Simulated scan of single mutants.
Amino acid sequence: MQTNVDITVLEQLIDSLQSCFSVEEAYTNIGPLIKQLFPNETGAIYVMNVLKNQLEAIATWGPVPLTSEPIFTPYECLALRREQTHLVEDTHYGLICQHIRPNYLPVETICVPMMAHGEPLGVLYVSSLKRGQITQIKQLALTVAKHISLALANLKLRESLKNQSLRDPLTKLYNRRYLEESLEREIRRSERYPKPLGIILIDIDQFNRFNETFGHAAGDMLLREMGMFLPSQIRASDIACRYGGEEFLLMLPEASLATTKQRSEQLRRNVKHLNIQYRSQILDSITISCGVASFSEHGLTGKAVIQAARAALHRAKAQGGDRIVTA
């Protein structure tokens, strides 16, 4: 039975989730409010990982230690296996989930699967040491699980759509739109502190000849390989983008011109070690040319720095490729 307090807190939870901009923000907001809805019970909100082979508690609460494992597989929860609420009114006689800790065995438990569009997102787990307690809050648990499911599904969809709009579909690197937004932000940050900002414009040498020799499918495969190679060569704070065609751009916040040149030389050497296979055939190693520029040494705007890097790249190509040229 829901009280006026429950309804008020539930409304706060719904409003809080609807105002979140990300799934991570929602995880942070859930904990304090869910605790108010189930003050006398122990429980947790579990969410499914990307591979859908593991659930992890993102919020826990209760007057006693959590009576369920903090991480478990979907197979270990009867509610997920059956895709329906699993209520155990007496754990000494009922069929309990495998994720419930035997050393902290509660009297009653309920697992409510959090579903959206037919897909499991997680589980709401609530337990009690008092008989009859869970039965009283069962309807509230169902309502809470429903609202959390819908909110998380909407946030995940929003993040997915946003990510798609900012990523190149072929290479999965950031696209030019994201680059322009990030570049302006980093330029302002570099002006404020001030800090250097390195730019590396990269071009795959002889890419058109590669396409003509092996076909466009092989060319797309090569671009995808570059899409995996570049992120493996940079720091978490760096940004790798597909700039257009066979061109890529790396933005290196707080990297001096000397550091940027050193990083581009490492890229030039390492790309030759890529093991590229197409239709069971190992292809010749590829080479790249790089144009290097730095803010504010080579321009006072993002556009100016990229133009300087492009002019340097053109000189590198004109000199035969497989080289680094600084603006």
Rank of each mutant, 00 (worst) to 15 (best):
R131Y: 12
L105Q: 02
E25Y: 02
F72W: 01
R81H: 09
Y93F: 15
L230Q: 07
T73A: 14
Q18L: 11
Y75C: 06
N208R: 15
S280N: 15
P231Q: 04
Q84H: 10
Y75M: 12
L95S: 12
A311E: 15
R188H: 10
T42C: 11
G245V: 08
A312I: 09
H117I: 06
A145Q: 02
N163K: 05
H92V: 06
E108M: 05
T67I: 00
D6N: 13
R177D: 04
G302H: 09
L33C: 05
N175K: 04
D168V: 06
T3P: 12
H117T: 00
G219V: 04
G227I: 07
L124H: 00
P70C: 00
A79K: 04
S165I: 03
T171F: 01
H147T: 01
A26F: 06
R323F: 08
A141F: 04
T85N: 13
V23H: 06
Y93V: 14
V5N: 12
A218V: 10
S296M: 09
I14P: 02
S22N: 02
T73D: 09
V305H: 12
T213Q: 14
V23S: 10
I306G: 08
R269N: 11
Q233H: 04
L313E: 09
N175C: 01
L17D: 05
S264V: 02
H298Y: 05
K146R: 08
L267H: 05
G132E: 14
E159Q: 07
L166V: 05
T91A: 11
L300C: 07
V325M: 09
L140P: 15
V88M: 09
A293D: 00
E83I: 13
V271A: 02
R177W: 02
L222R: 10
R131W: 03
N49S: 12
G43C: 03
L51S: 15
N29H: 10
E76N: 09
M228V: 13
H86V: 04
M114P: 06
L105W: 04
L17T: 01
L313F: 12
T67L: 01
M48H: 11
P106T: 04
S289N: 04
E25D: 06
G299Y: 04
V107C: 03
I282W: 15
R192D: 13
G118W: 07
L66E: 00
R268V: 08
A327W: 09
Q281D: 15
L17S: 06
I7K: 14
M1D: 12
R209T: 15
M1W: 12
G291Q: 08
K272S: 12
Q319R: 13
R101A: 06
L150T: 02
P253Y: 08
R209G: 01
G122H: 03
P102S: 00
F38W: 08
M1K: 14
P65A: 03
R279A: 14
R209C: 12
E297M: 13
Q98F: 01
L157W: 07
K272Q: 15
I148N: 07
P70W: 02
L80H: 05
G118N: 07
L170R: 05
I148G: 07
C77E: 04
A293E: 02
C77A: 12
D15G: 03
P169M: 11
A258F: 09
E76M: 11
H216Q: 10
E186I: 00
I14D: 02
G245R: 03
M228G: 11
